[in-house]
Design a protein around this nucleic acid. Structure first.
Lengths: 205, 205, 205, 205
DNA sequence: GATGAATGAGTATTCATTCAT
DNA sequence: GATGAATGAATACTCATTCAT
């Protein structure tokens, strides 16, 4: 009992400033990334957040809700950023390069979320998966529009359908958590640079 | 009792010819791919295979063993195929193209295994994950050797490190199960063709 | 559902006043004594206590924990009592007689615990067995000190080492559950009287 | 699989001379004593004996049969030996001393059997327990007859009922496995000497 | 807002035993 | 005599969720 009190006190000290709801999502994301969605119990989450189960169920309707929230926030953020790039100025090639770099950098900046995303999506109930996939489709289509612009103006060849190009590139980015190690020799920006080179090189007319 | 006999008969009809051990692995792979490792109970597996739990534990020490076996068989098969391509004749570019196509085709031919692979590896105990990753590393290094050959003889540019090229391409292939639908408009061979074009295009000196 | 309600009502009637945690330990002790540790399932325990499994695991980490608790409580109680006798007044012979009677009486007053103790200790994990044996050793040594006092002042002969005397006597007491039947012709106090006579008679100089 | 073959070969080499049936009982006794009856699986037994399950069920009808056999052999042996002592020559005191020493020595010479006996009897089905207890009662009564002879001729006092004396002494002997360590400072004969002194000292008129 | 005791349905795994060969 | 594949019932334990306070 002494231990619990100490933990609670410690957790409270460490993150009491941050509101409980946000803290819960943050620690849940970290735990899901480390141990998987199924490997993380609600008890693990509330212990790490320094609150009790009742508190969690006050803010989130279920464990699934937490997972959904991780997805939703990541997707919203990335879609917003892509939107700005798509609508920005510059040639299609310049804007595609910017988008290709940005998706890598923003993914590596939120690596835990990415890892959770591609590991645990299938654990959500069917309707939630459908919702997520629809959001994801919007992102895919915006990216594809950039590729098609470049094909239309002759910057890129048209040997490979734009849909496949986008699947190919976003797949590579999605799996990035499988090999990238923060603190390793490469920065997120460098990886973005290299990845975008490989994409654009493969599209040159 | 009538029900059981019917089930047994059904199972017999479906796959009694195939030995029990192999049948268990096959149905487990399918179920893991559909519902995830955690979403599949041992009961689900033995029901689908038409045997009892005891039979499964006679052949496999644990549910983990089944998962490991999926990985091991897929990796062994792909490594063997890559080996033959690497040691074959032809220019580095020809052999890299062959390898790039082969990894796509053999992945799509074993789509269930691929899906399981990249979704459930993290559910295995640490030591097994390490074993798998070591096997995977061998595959990666063989692939990288091909890229480096082409860089050495000037066929490919050297702007992007070979390691990153291989991570990039294999990541894209690994995620292929996230969008490819068997029976859709594209055949595995066509996808292999497109993917290899994107890879080799991005490498041209 | 009717059945369950009746059971719950029955349990409530029998012991709802007593807190759940204590009730669980009490019924577990009784069942372990009757059917052995291995012969008692967790389901048996929670059914008898009128709660569900989850409740038991809320209070005790495992079935082993329940068993350990039986041991720990019995040992603590007996060690406390012996302590008071050892430190009390009177000749060594008087105090040894008091201790010899007390260990019999307190064992027969907690016969279920005794039976469990000497039947199921070996089912605990090694580290717990070691902990129990250390507690038991303290008891043994206190008892031995009494015997040695009497040997030092010439009341008892020294033909048999004090260690063996204590092993001999405590062994006899430990096995008492193998033949004593509560409600039979002898009271615990009478058995204590006879046993102490046999011990002290065998020690007279 | 290589491991199993090696084990089998090793077991075969070690004990092939001894007939299978006897070997099974011997290894079962050792394992029951080390790990308890419930902690020993039939697979453990047949592995240690270097045979297969089918072989065990050829010789013994069940795992219970093995346990019963341990009890039966030990009891038969000890009863036979006690019989000879009871019917022998000498004063009651001399014969009681001989019996008191013999039960210790023969118990320590078959320490595994003793340990199994007092730990696992309660795991047998009720009817088998009853049978064993009847055999045990015969032994008890023979021992008691010796005590009563000494009481009748005035050698022993009659303050403590003979029944209790015998329970007391045999209990102490039964628990001997709880502290005696073969290879320790004391030989079985020495322990028998000390225990018999404590018994006879406590009985002197 | 928050607690934590309690639920109940679920999980992987074990194991004595049987039986066709 | 002996094998080992297969059974089926039992076991300890987990966990997301609820609800009286």
């Amino acid at each position: 009992m002494a231990v619990r009190q100490k933990e609670s006190a410690g957790a409270a000290r460490a993150g009491a400033a941050r509101p409980v709801k946000e803290r819960l999502l943050r620690v849940a994301t970290r735990l899901f990334a480390r141990n998987g969605f199924e490997g993380t119990s609600v008890q693990d989450i509330v212990d790490a957040a320094g609150v009790t189960k009742g508190a969690m169920y006050h803010y989130y309707g279920s464990k699934d809700d937490l997972l959904y929230e991780v997805y939703h926030q990541l997707l919203t953020m990335q879609t917003t950023r892509l939107n700005e790039i798509v609508k920005g100025s510059g040639t299609p090639e310049e804007r595609l390069r910017a988008a290709a770099i940005d998706v890598v950098v923003s993914s590596l900046d939120n690596l835990d979320d990415m890892i959770v995303f591609f590991r645990s999506l299938h654990m959500l109930p069917e309707d939630r998966q459908t919702a997520i996939r629809a959001e994801r489709r919007v992102y895919h289509d915006q990216f594809k529009a950039l590729v098609e612009e470049g094909m239309a103006d002759g910057t890129f060849h048209t040997e490979v359908p734009a849909d496949i190009v986008v699947h190919f590139y976003l797949s590579a980015v999605n799996q990035i958590g499988a090999w990238f190690r923060p603190g390793g020799p490469l920065t997120p920006a460098q990886v973005g640079e290299e990845y975008s080179k490989l994409l654009l090189g493969g599209l040159q007319a």
